[in-house]
C-alpha cells in the first residue's frame, strides 16, 4: 500500500471511529444518566452541581419490587406483550406476503386501511374498550390488552414486511417451486431466512411499542393484569416527581427489551451472508 493510501485509510478509520463514538455518546448519555440516577438516593439525585461519584443505593429498586409489586407486573407485561407480538408477527407477515406476492383486489385500499389503525388517536379506543371489558367480564384480564396490542402492531408488520418481502426477487421462489417445493415450503426454506433482518427489526419494534403502552394498560387493568408502564407511572406523584423511582422503573422496564435487541442483533447481521444468494 502506498503511503497516501495508508494515510487515507488511517484517516478514514479515525473519522469513522470518531463519528461512531460521538453518535454512541449522544444516544447513550441520557441512558447513563438514568441508570446512575436509579442508584442515587433522593438527596444525591437532586444535588446541584450533579454528583458523579456517590454511594449507590438499591432503595429505588427495592421500592419498585416491594411497594409497587413490579415483579408481577413484569410477568404480566411479558405474557401480554409476548403473545400480542407473536400474533401480530404471524398475522401481519402472512398478510404482507399476500399483498406482496398476489394480485388481491383493492390491495392498496386494504393496505391503507391497515395503516389507518395507527392513525386514530388511541384516546378514542379507551372508553369503548373499557365498556367491552366490563360487558364481557374481561376487565383486569390479559385478553383485551393482548388483542389491542396485536391490533396496533399489525400496521407495522404488514407495511414493513411487505417491503422486505418485495426485496426478495420472486425468481428465487419460482426456482424453488420449479424444483418441487410447495408455496409454504418455499416460504419456510427460502424466503424466511432472507427475511430475517426485516423480521428481527419488526419484532423488536412491535414488542417495544406494546411493552411501553400506558393509556389502555392503565384503564383496563387493576390488580391482576397490571403491566409495567402503569407501575412506572407511579413515580409521578400529584405534586412531585420521584426522580429516583422513575429512573429505576425506566431501567427495569428497559432491560428485557434491551436484551431482546441484543439477541436480535445477530439476525440483523445474518442477512448479509445470505445476501450472496441474491443475484
Amino acid at each position: 500500500m502506498s503511503n497516501s493510501r495508508i494515510l487515507k485509510s488511517g484517516a478514514g478509520a479515525l473519522a469513522a471511529y470518531g463519528l461512531a463514538i460521538a453518535a454512541a455518546l449522544f444516544f447513550a448519555f441520557p441512558i447513563f444518566w438514568m441508570v446512575t440516577s436509579s442508584f442515587k438516593s433522593e438527596v444525591d439525585i437532586s444535588a446541584y452541581p450533579p454528583v458523579w461519584s456517590f454511594s449507590p443505593t438499591l432503595a429505588n429498586y427495592a421500592q419498585l419490587f416491594t411497594e409497587l409489586n413490579a415483579w408481577q407486573a413484569l410477568l404480566n407485561s411479558a405474557l401480554i406483550v409476548g403473545l400480542a407480538t407473536c400474533i401480530a408477527m404471524a398475522a401481519g407477515t402472512m398478510a404482507a406476503y399476500a399483498l406482496a406476492r398476489f394480485d388481491v383486489k383493492g390491495k392498496e385500499f386494504l393496505a391503507f386501511e391497515i395503516l389507518s389503525i395507527r392513525m386514530l388517536p388511541p384516546i378514542v379506543s379507551v372508553i369503548p374498550m373499557f365498556i367491552i371489558a366490563r360487558q364481557l367480564g374481561i376487565f383486569d384480564t390479559p385478553w383485551l390488552l393482548i388483542a389491542a396490542y396485536a391490533l396496533s402492531g399489525l400496521p407495522f408488520v404488514v407495511w414493513v414486511m411487505r417491503v422486505f418481502i418485495q426485496d426478495i426477487p420472486q425468481s428465487i421462489e419460482e426456482a424453488a417451486m420449479i424444483d418441487g417445493c410447495s408455496r409454504f415450503e418455499t416460504f419456510w426454506r427460502v424466503t424466511l431466512p432472507l427475511l430475517l433482518p426485516g423480521l428481527a427489526a419488526t419484532m423488536v419494534i412491535v414488542f417495544m411499542f406494546a411493552w411501553n403502552e400506558f393509556l389502555l394498560a392503565s384503564m383496563l387493568t387493576s390488580q391482576e393484569a397490571k403491566t409495567l408502564p402503569v407501575i412506572a407511572a407511579n413515580a409521578i406523584k400529584p405534586k412531585a416527581i420521584a426522580w429516583g423511582l422513575a429512573s429505576a422503573a425506566g431501567v427495569m422496564m428497559s432491560l428485557p427489551v434491551v436484551v431482546l435487541v441484543l439477541l436480535m442483533q445477530r439476525y440483523l447481521v445474518r442477512g448479509l451472508t445470505l445476501g450472496a444468494v441474491k443475484g
Binding site: F27, A28, P30, I31, M34, I205, M208, W211, N212, F214, L228, P229, A232, A233, A235, I236, A246, A249, G250, M253, S254, V257, V258, V261
Partner: peptide
C-alpha cells in the same frame, strides 16, 4: 437503546 426506554 433510546427507543426502547419507556416514554415516561
Amino acid at each position: 437503546i433510546p427507543m426502547l426506554i419507556t416514554p415516561i
